[in-house]
Amino acid sequence: MDEEAGPFLDKTEVAAQDFMVGEAHYYPRTLKLENSDVPLLLVRSKIGLVNAATAFTVALELVPNPRVVISAGTAGGLRQDINVGDLAVGLDYTYTDADATAFGYVRGQVPGMPEKYSTSAELLEVAREAAADYQGEGNVFVDTMLAGGSFVTAHNVKDTREIFSQAISTDMETTAIAQVASSREVPFIAIRGISDLCGPAADQDFHMAGEIVSERSAQLSTALIARLVQSETHWLREENND
């Protein structure tokens, strides 16, 4: 959504004219760090699994070998210990409403596809380092993230929590992007701010404005990018010294 893209537009500079392909909006940008300028392609896909997968497939034609792909923005909080304003970082990803268990598949698994899609150990390590240094508001949770074609609400959250007991969040795009990234063998991670709780307890706030949590998502996402650039520069420096 526009409010999810906004913080990234504020933190980056225009690199070329933005454009649309179908429903998706593409923004070539530059993230200026202390010692380098990092090229970014910001994509606002609109809502839904198909919109996200389509927009990302086009993006991969424009940037065939990205250093990292990040699904950013907002999500619904799922696990009981997560609150609005917190951040969800993906360990692995599956579908909320995929159910082919009658044919021997696990819940969340699309027939013929992996049970889950995972962030690589190397990328996850850098993300954990960025999360440990995160100075913004809200706590950072790292675990399973869900996505599906339906909203999880208080009406159906009990079933979802029982089946996916470790899942921290749910949205309508992330797993589709993870699936495409896996098929193309590009590094992927999701970093989303919790704007709503799917089934809040009586003493929990259940909503926070999307632009607020999107800013937190953008803050941690850009910190991760900076760390990746630093680690890559350090590796290249060591290689040149050898």
Rank of each mutant, 00 (worst) to 15 (best):
E4W: 05
F8W: 08
A15L: 10
D18W: 01
D18T: 03
V21Q: 05
G22M: 03
A24V: 09
P28Y: 04
K32G: 04
S36W: 05
L42F: 03
V43Y: 01
R44N: 12
I47E: 05
G48R: 04
V58W: 02
E61I: 01
P64E: 09
N65Y: 08
N83V: 02
V89T: 12
L91N: 11
D92Y: 14
D97K: 07
D97F: 15
A100C: 03
F103V: 04
F103P: 02
G104Y: 05
Y105I: 08
P111R: 04
M113C: 11
P114S: 15
E115N: 07
E115T: 10
A121R: 14
E125L: 14
A130M: 07
A130D: 06
A132F: 09
A132I: 09
Y134E: 10
G138W: 10
D143C: 10
G149A: 15
A154Y: 03
H155V: 11
R161I: 05
E162D: 14
S165Y: 05
A176C: 03
I177Y: 09
A181L: 07
S183A: 14
I191K: 04
L197N: 03
C198I: 02
P200K: 01
A201K: 12
A202I: 13
D203A: 15
D205A: 13
M208Q: 06
I212C: 02
L220Q: 11
T222W: 05
L224A: 08
I225F: 06
A226N: 14
V229G: 13
S231E: 15
L236Q: 15
